[in-house]
Design a protein around this nucleic acid. Structure first.
Lengths: 241, 241
DNA sequence: CGCATCTTCGGGGTTTACCCCAGCCAATTG
DNA sequence: CAATTGGCTGGGGTAAACCCCGAAGATGCG
């Protein structure tokens, strides 16, 4: 059995490695990589059965690395490691795992037992999702609360601080369309408008950013990515999530 | 020499403990606690020379724990451990360390050598600040870019999604005063107004939240704290930072 | 096909956020 | 002392954000 560990933090790699050699005795060494690009290259060569991927990494994120690897080697068992229960990542992960592929998703504050459990599950063909993430997954599948990609685009834009006008220009829409997206976004995030809810007055725009961040719909590093994309002279058109 | 380690993550405690027993041989055992309250209680009993404190912990944050401990035992050498280079924390830390007290501030992605170095420095009466934080500190001391507490209050409020009116009510100010605070806040964050900067149109309010978060002036967990404070039926008056 | 959902877009409104200008008071500071 | 700075107040304005209404095209589904 071949195992790969991909994480940019040496400390986390060692922790995981120790955990694995104890619980999965094997004559094969455990291979390590410390960024996404390396991971993809190495995976192509050694074709691991099981691969642990950190999400937050330089060069190429764990999500993108997983995408590349699963495309060529759909049989690979993937276990994502993350510090956050961010919905952004779950959204993305859901899209790239092949319908019958298996994967695990464990938070880094998981107990050692949970990590081993996740690894065993994936190896035997099951999925293992961290308990704390279960409800996040549910929410992404609930029509009433999950965001459409149109709404998500708008969310990202206001979180970056763009005006309606700027968003319209950027996404090739009228301002009305933008406001329409925002309106349904606010509704789904449960943010009261002017009339409703007497006590609580909100600036919906900022409130939406706050709520969305708390729910893990967006996070700072994702936003920074978008920010730099926008600065690339508005190329590539509206992006997909 | 007595050493204490305070961290809610078992993994980080073990890493640090191993590091310390290797580099600081001592007949004394290394004491551990896993939240702020425990840390304070234990510190009172054993009066450690050196204490490592994680910032993000349940019950009582590392900052608050440090405050309590330094008040009773100002001689204690404190080394803060943090995942972030957030300016919020530096602001707070600066206020609670006694003028002649020593402390270290290391990020968790620091190398083993750096941690040992920080520990040695603090033990010998020096401060040790993580390189990545140096410029943050500088910024907090630069009059032109550092926020006053008035501006900071306003920042927190808009980040929570409050309207000018709601902020005014909350802080016992007129709306004009709030807008005045916001205006200078935007200026210090370098956010262009309507007239200036032709290409880039910004919703200053949201943009301020984004920029402030990126600079570590605010972060989600701090905001959540404020949010719950606000829900406590507006007690305690405007808070200080 | 009818039906539902998502999305865009129009007209025509109110409120909020931001703009410029000026003055006043308190606390520092040279 | 005068000078400066930070903070609050006021008047009076513009533009952006949000409100309700309805309509129409695209898509997918039973």
């Amino acid at each position: 059995m071949t195992i790969m560990i991909v994480d940019d933090e040496e400390r986390d790699r060692m922790w995981l490695k120790n955990l694995l050699v104890e619980n999965f005795p094997s004559d094969q060494p455990i291979h390590e990589a410390h960024d996404g690009q390396q991971a993809v290259d190495m995976a192509m060569k050694i074709k691991p059965n099981l691969i642990f991927l950190d999400i937050k990494m330089p060069q190429l994120s764990g999500i993108k690395a997983a995408e590349a690897i699963l495309q060529k080697l759909p049989e690979t068992g993937v276990v994502m490691l993350s510090n956050f229960s961010d919905e952004v990542y779950v959204r993305q992960l859901w899209k790239i795992v092949p319908p019958n592929g298996v994967f695990g998703y464990v938070l880094k504050n998981a107990s050692n037992e949970q990590v081993v459990e996740a690894a065993r599950a994936v190896l035997s063909g099951d999925c293992w999702i961290h308990p704390g993430i279960a409800r996040v997954i549910q929410r992404t599948q609930n029509r009433a609360t999950s965001l459409t990609s149109a709404e998500y685009e708008a969310l990202v834009c206001i979180a970056l601080g763009m005006t309606d006008h700027a968003i319209a220009k950027r996404l090739y829409l009228t301002e009305k369309a933008v406001q329409s997206r925002l309106k349904s976004l606010y509704a789904k995030l449960g943010i009261p408008g002017r009339g409703e809810s007497h006590e609580s007055e909100f600036n919906q725009r900022c409130r939406a950013c706050y709520v969305a961040t708390r729910r893990g719909l967006i996070n700072q590093s994702e936003l920074d990515d978008w920010e730099s994309k926008l600065e690339e002279k508005k190329q590539g058109g509206p992006a997909q999530v």
